[in-house]
């Protein structure tokens, strides 16, 4: 059971300022963390390979500091780590990201499963996994809360939708995106953390290493263009507490609402 996991480094805080001119997040100086949902994907991959054997390879696209997210994956037990980093890859939307990851997965070669977190904590699009499946031309099973391998070469997941759960099956290879509730990610032991930084390697692939069409990478290959970024203005209100007899309070409330054209 060889598994490729796609992971991302995201800002540690949700309070990341926007650059109003470029329409991008200002990440400088904000520490990055491994996307929480991707930790679930790693845990799911490790549980599967512990049961069925095989190799887990983590790939991530980003600037050089993304190395830390991959080292964390290695400390958790992932076998190989690949960093996709190049100035041509910068500024990618979900389509260009998926295209780049597709080339990387193809370069890795053999795999039975590709696992992704459902979505990243910063972008929150949940698009990369499904788009990657389309590029790879393999079945996609999304929002998994359980994964099991059946009949040797089929996978069955429990899919979480808004109000219901569904069971889905597909032949391997396939791509699965996982929900947070699928598992409780393990904590890396201290010696594994040391090994991840001292003994293990993170392979670095550039756009040239991946091949593909240069115009489909990064900002150039991104049809999504952010025209304007603005922050919602929050009007500060004042709390008014109406006291007294219930009927009279209700009557007063209706009058206030009418006065403010809120009825």
């Amino acid at each position: 059971m060889d598994i490729v996991i796609c992971i991302k480094e995201v800002p540690e805080t949700t309070n990341v300022p926007w650059d109003p001119k470029k329409g991008t997040l200002i990440r400088e100086g904000i520490p990055g963390i491994l996307n929480p949902n991707d930790k679930n994907a790693i845990e799911a991959a490790l549980q599967l390979t512990e049961k069925y054997g095989g190799v887990v390879t983590a790939i991530s696209m980003g600037p050089t500091q993304t190395d830390d997210a991959l080292r964390e994956a290695l400390s958790l037990g992932v076998d190989n780590a690949v960093l996709l980093t190049d100035r041509h890859l910068a500024g990618a939307d979900t389509l260009a990201t998926s295209y780049t990851l597709y080339l990387a997965v193809k370069k890795i070669g053999r795999f039975d499963l590709v696992l992704c977190g459902k979505e990243s904590a910063d972008g929150v699009t949940a698009q990369v996994g499904p788009q990657l499946a389309e590029f790879l031309d393999i079945p996609q099973l999304t929002y998994a809360t359980n994964i099991e391998i059946i009949k040797g070469n089929f996978v069955r997941i429990k899919q979480k939708l808004e109000d219901v759960y569904r069971e889905l099956e597909s032949p391997l290879p396939a791509l699965i995106t996982v929900e947070r509730e699928i598992n409780n990610p393990r904590i890396p032991p201290m010696d594994h953390i040391m090994e991840a930084y001292r003994d293990k390697q993170v392979m670095v692939w550039t756009a040239d290493d991946l091949g593909g069409q240069m115009e489909r990478f990064g900002l150039k290959g991104s049809p999504t263009q952010c025209l304007k970024v603005y922050t919602q203005r929050i009007k500060k209100g004042k709390v008014q507490i109406l006291e007294g007899d219930g009927f009279m309070v209700a009557k007063e409330l209706v009058q206030i609402l009418r006065k403010r054209n809120l009825t």
Binding site: D68, E72, S75, I187, P188, A196, Y197, R198
Partner: peptide
């Protein structure tokens, strides 16, 4: 602090909070 030390801090924090 080194990146290794920072990850150890994070692991210890998770351990403390969960266990």
């Amino acid at each position: 602090l080194s990146a290794e030390s920072k990850l150890m801090i994070k692991a210890a924090r998770d351990f403390a909070e969960q266990t």
